[in-house]
Simulated scan of single mutants.
Amino acid sequence: MILADMHNHTIISHGEATVAQMYEAARARGLSWYGFSEHSPLPPGYACPLYHGDLAEDFPRYIEEVSGLKDAASPRVLLGMELDWIPSRMPYMRELAARWPFDYVIGGLHFLGSLAVGSPKNWGRGESEEERRARFAAYYREMTRMVRSGLMNIAAHPDFIKVRCPESFHAWLDMPGSLELVREALRAMSECGVALEVSSAGLRKDFAEPYPAPAIMRMAAELGVSISFGSDAHSTADVAFAFERLAAYARSFGYSHSVAFQARQPFTLPF
């Protein structure tokens, strides 16, 4: 059994349930640790049309509500944040990561420059396969920089860029040199103590594959990269989603422990 779900969202951003409702779902699933990791407020010039309200204004309420659950016994609550990696706004990101007493920070690579990599409007609108391959390469170069920034404890959904084009992504992985770019990002995780998120969110997509893909998991295991489990839940039904399948997936690559973080320090959990 996976004991900790480290990646979860609430109605504060674009989830469907409150902090209290998500916590009750975690209790019902029998988790020992539950990490809230709400999206970070975006800097000026960036926006997510999916957010319900003003995240910058509402985020302190999220901190207060999660902090109010810290004395709960089962599951134990961890305060986290999914920080959008925007390298042109380094001072903004550093200040945000230091503003509250986070147990951990997840690095979310959702933007390549001004390109929102998960947005359907940026895929299938006439770009060539060559352009897609260039995006994939840029994504892993940026992931390496993100991991080495020192801001993150966990690298979220490490092949999220496949979400709108899984066939193109897998074809790119098979091309000479592609896996070496991925390996550089994984090597950075190993050297910097950043955990690779193994996420069941991909199992809720049409391609029904976890994040990350098997080729990436295999390299991570070879390099000794630690893993962290997350559902990327946006509703109570998503909490600990398909964790039995996720545990079997990780075990198939030789993993038997995951990591969680408290006061930014890792601790291991068997599964």
Rank of each mutant, 00 (worst) to 15 (best):
A98W: 04
Y255L: 01
S114Y: 08
R132F: 15
Y211P: 04
T236N: 08
A134C: 05
L42T: 12
F267I: 03
A260M: 10
H39D: 08
Y139L: 09
G118V: 03
S40P: 00
Y139S: 03
E57I: 01
F207W: 13
V239N: 07
V225D: 13
P49W: 09
A237T: 13
S178F: 01
A156W: 08
V163M: 13
L181F: 03
E191V: 08
A185P: 10
F207A: 06
E16N: 07
L196N: 11
G230K: 05
A208Q: 15
P43W: 10
L179A: 14
C165A: 15
A263K: 15
L69R: 05
R89S: 04
L186S: 04
A171E: 14
E167S: 14
L179I: 01
G53I: 01
C165W: 15
A98F: 01
A25T: 00
V147D: 08
W33A: 00
A242V: 07
V225P: 10
E191P: 13
S128Y: 05
G107W: 01
G150C: 14
Y104L: 08
R135C: 04
R141F: 04
P75F: 05
G53F: 01
V117D: 01
P214A: 02
S67Q: 11
E142N: 10
S37M: 04
A116I: 10
L96M: 14
E129H: 12
L173N: 04
M143P: 03
K205I: 02
M175W: 04
S40A: 13
M93N: 05
P210Q: 01
M152T: 13
H52Q: 07
M146C: 05
P210V: 05
S40H: 04
N153K: 12
R218I: 01
A72F: 14
A237L: 11
G193K: 10
P214N: 07
P266C: 06
H110K: 02
R89Y: 11
R133W: 14
I106R: 00
I161R: 04
H110Q: 00
D159S: 11
F160M: 13
A4T: 07
R164S: 15
N8V: 09
A240K: 11
C192K: 15
L31T: 01
G118E: 14
L69C: 00
P49I: 10
R141Y: 05
H7P: 03
R94V: 08
P120R: 08
A4R: 07
G108W: 04
R99Q: 14
E131M: 06
M143W: 02
D5C: 01
F267K: 10
Y140T: 02
R27N: 00
L3D: 08
S226N: 14
F207Y: 15
D159A: 09
A4I: 04
Q265S: 13
I216W: 12
A248L: 12
L79E: 08
L223H: 05
R61W: 13
P210T: 00
F169P: 02
L269F: 06
P87Q: 11
I161W: 03
E209H: 08
L109P: 00
V225M: 14
G30A: 07
L50Q: 15
S149I: 11
F253K: 10
M90A: 13
A17D: 12
S190Y: 08
Y104E: 02
A97S: 11
G177M: 02
P43M: 12
I11N: 02
D238H: 14
F271C: 10
Y140R: 01
L269G: 09
E180T: 09
E64K: 07
A155E: 03
S114R: 15
S119Q: 08
Y211H: 08
Y92G: 01
R264E: 11
